[in-house]
Amino acid sequence: MSDLKYRLSDFYSPEFKAIFLDEIKNTVTEELKEHRDRSHGGKPSSTCQYEISAERLIFYLNQELGTLPKVVHQKYEILDKSIREKVFVSYSHFDKEYLSDIQRHFKPFKSQIDFWDDSRIQPGQKWKDEIRNAILETKVAILLVSTDFLGSDFISSDELPPLLEAAEKEGAVILIVILKPCLFEEFDDLNQFQAMNPPNRPVSKMDENEKEELFVNLVRQTRKVLNEK
């Protein structure tokens, strides 16, 4: 352990050292648990040399981790635990009647799908923080596109950038529904994604059955994405 410690101090910053040692500790801890389950019925053995060595290594690793900047170690743990499972709806409040229709289609699956829109924000909560936190957990982002959506300063500055970054870097999926006639094709950051319906056939031009079929397909595609995780 002392040899490893000196080698790390030569080549790693304290931040990288914390992450590296934490990985080793997690690996040793998991392997120790597997050994106990396999060889000792899940119980510790005071005479097993493998367990004695593993416990000693974990002890020294914990000692060394205790000397590192705690904020670095805490940040690493939070990132390691982040899981994207939410369905996040981004829309303009001018289009709220369309949100109600989509909520209705997702409602039968509320026990399976964590469907989030800003109607879940409770009085007294900091609404910007709630939206930001929901975006950090988003696996599927449903964008309800209209002229009002495209013209919203809040959507363009606070919602779209982190959602598009999550799609590019973290495997989030963007599903676009064109609600009303708009210049969707002029926005390169959005038109790179295939919309659920063509821009020349927005929801506002659909009859009732066509609209229902579109929303059913939206739920079907969302469930498919979530089930692929």
Rank of each mutant, 00 (worst) to 15 (best):
G41K: 03
G42H: 05
K43Y: 07
C48N: 05
Q49Y: 06
Q49N: 07
Y50M: 13
I52R: 13
S53E: 07
E55Q: 15
R56T: 07
L57I: 14
L57W: 04
L57N: 03
L57V: 12
I58Q: 06
Y60P: 06
L61T: 07
N62P: 08
N62Y: 03
N62D: 09
Q63S: 11
G66N: 13
T67A: 14
L68M: 14
H73L: 15
Q74I: 15
K75T: 06
I78S: 11
L79Q: 08
D80I: 01
K81M: 13
K81W: 02
S82V: 13
S82Q: 14
I83T: 08
R84E: 07
R84M: 14
V87R: 00
V87S: 01
V87C: 10
V89G: 00
V89R: 00
S90H: 00
S92F: 02
F94M: 09
D95V: 08
D95Y: 09
E97S: 14
L99Y: 05
L99S: 04
L99F: 08
Q103M: 15
Q103G: 02
R104G: 07
R104H: 12
H105G: 02
H105P: 07
F106R: 00
K107P: 06
K110T: 08
K110Y: 06
S111M: 13
D114L: 07
D117C: 15
D118Q: 10
I121H: 03
Q125L: 11
W127P: 07
D129P: 12
E130G: 11
E130F: 12
I131C: 10
I131F: 04
I135R: 01
I135P: 00
I135F: 05
E137H: 11
E137K: 08
K139Y: 07
V140C: 15
A141R: 00
A141P: 07
L143D: 01
V145D: 04
V145G: 03
S146K: 01
S146H: 01
D148F: 01
F149G: 02
F149R: 01
L150D: 04
G151W: 04
G151L: 13
D153Y: 04
D153F: 01
S157N: 09
D158F: 08
E159I: 05
E159Q: 09
